[in-house]
Design a binder for these strands. Structure first.
Length: 429
RNA sequence: GCGGUUGUGGUGAAGUGGUUAACACAGCGGAUUGUGGCUCCGUCAUUCGCGCGUUCGAAUCGCGUCAGCCGCCCCA
């Protein structure tokens, strides 16, 4: 093989494309219902849109596809996530001036991260996400979670777990961070090498370390909730209360620390509990960010919240639960051309059928009668239209109902009427 | 970035140093010049991910490389 697709990328092949279209349709319908509008931002941005000061995440520091063209000083990065570009656009286009805040946006498209591929993880993968910008209210937080949960439920998923936590505001977080460092100080030497690094950089990450998870020192770690100031605690309690009111099931998980550094207050994840998911079972994740809009030059104090779902992972979760969204639909009719002298006649009929809105195709390989009939079967056509020398001479079409195995010859100008009768009157369409 | 595992036609898969690379499915042609899904016959990989090496001889052995899968890290 001379050419092959780059590692960790994949072609969306025709047999799967109907699944994707059905998924995209459902996502758009829900956004329409919740009054979210679509935004499309570039697949690459200036590198500093993603690489922000103080960001310690692997995604930003080790996994970005960053490039610089030979004759250019501009460093560009293929987007590893959707939020930064959307917030950049929100500010750049002064959408914060919209009288009706929050501005509610959704996006979908490919993201690129240089990671080692495995189940549920690709180097180019597709995310669908929403961002709700310019309003800070527990109702807004809950609206986004309800939207997320409703979409996954509507798609048919059952083995779901909604995990929820709060990171508090800056003051709460700083206090907690300090408390963790004080707590872990005597234990630093016993922690894994990654956690030694985390201890200094981002001690919150020690909490969800799998290596150190069962160690003695993990039992009495300080809890975030004990370091929340009143405002942060009340905000989170209201979010929980509203979810209870709406009967959205969730579990508060105080070990939940999102990977991206920009989150504040509410963070959440929806995980598929299905055994077949492999190690990457988080299907959807998001949270509130108080600092991103100001960072990009928008109004101080303006907050946003959003989430993203991995479309490939979602499709894995659906498959794991035996859910097929949509198969390729069969043809209305397949034209069999039995004699080359009749090809033009058949081709005109094909074109006419399409002009009338019928989904059809014809044999182009001059195959045997038998082979053409097999093609009819493979196309799952309702009708086979058999056209040869006799039909052409007499302006006839032999039409065979595949399911009923009945067939008759009709005149060429009766064909549309014949099909309309079948598809419209008998409601087979 | 680290570890494990795999790589033979459109698909599944045998072959572990010796002239023509099993077999099955799918495809195509025919038995049955215009009525399929059954049956039978025929046909379908100058080539075994790619490169280099060992050898008289390599799909089979060695090295390298690329890729798939699974896990770690991390994340959707």
């Amino acid at each position: 093989m001379a050419y092959q697709i780059p590692r960790g990328t994949q072609d969306l092949l025709p047999e799967k494309s109907y699944q994707w279209q059905a998924l995209e349709r459902t996502l758009r319908e829900f956004c329409y219902l919740y009054n979210y509008d679509e935004i499309r931002t570039p697949v690459f941005e200036h590198t500093n849109v993603f690489k922000r000061e103080n960001d310690s995440s692997d995604m930003v520091n080790k996994e970005m596809y960053t490039f610089q063209l030979e004759n250019s000083k501009t460093s560009l990065t293929i987007r590893p996530e959707g939020t930064a570009g959307v917030v950049r656009s929100f500010v750049e286009n002064k959408m914060y001036a919209n009288p009706d805040l929050p501005v509610k946006l959704y996006y979908m498209g490919p993201m690129a991260r240089h990671e080692r591929p495995q189940k549920g993880r690709l180097r180019i993968f597709n995310q669908f996400g929403i961002e709700c910008l310019g309003n800070k209210s527990p109702f807004t937080d809950v609206e986004t979670i309800v939207l997320a949960f409703s979409i996954l439920k509507a798609l048919g998923l059952n083995d779901l777990k909604v995990c929820l936590n709060t990171l508090g505001d800056d003051a709460s977080r700083a206090a907690y961070r300090q408390a963790l460092q004080t707590y872990f100080e005597p234990y630093v030497d016993t922690l894994c090498s990654d956690c030694k690094r985390r201890y200094a950089q981002n001690p919150l990450r020690i909490l969800d370390c799998k290596v150190d998870h069962d160690k003695e020192c993990m039992k009495n770690v300080p809890k975030m909730k004990d370091y929340l100031n009143d405002e942060s605690r009340e905000y989170f309690e209201t979010v929980c209360h509203l979810l209870d009111e709406l009967e959205i099931p969730y579990a508060v998980d105080d070990q939940l620390v999102r990977g991206l550094d920009y989150y504040t207050h509410t963070v959440f994840e929806i995980v598929s509990m299905n055994q077949e998911m492999g190690a990457q079972s988080t299907v959807l994740a998001g949270g509130r960010y108080d600092h991103l809009i100001p960072y990009f030059g928008g109004p101080e104090q303006m907050s946003g919240i959003g989430w993203a779902l991995g479309m490939e992972r979602l499709l894995i979760a659906l498959e794991a639960e035996g859910i097929t969204l949509e198969e390729k639909p069969g043809l209305d009719a397949y034209l069999m051309c039995l004699d080359e002298s009749a090809r033009m006649y058949a081709f005109k009929i094909l074109t006419q059928l399409r002009a009338y809105g019928y989904r059809c195709d014809m044999d182009m390989l001059q195959r045997s009668f038998k082979a053409q009939f097999k093609a009819v079967d493979r196309s799952h056509a309702k009708f086979a239209l058999i056209i040869g020398e006799d039909e052409r001479k007499n302006h006839l079409i032999t039409i065979k109902n595949i399911e009923k195995k009945t067939q008759e010859s009709i005149s060429q100008d009766q064909l549309i009427e014949y099909l309309d009768h079948y598809f419209v009157d008998e409601d087979h369409h």
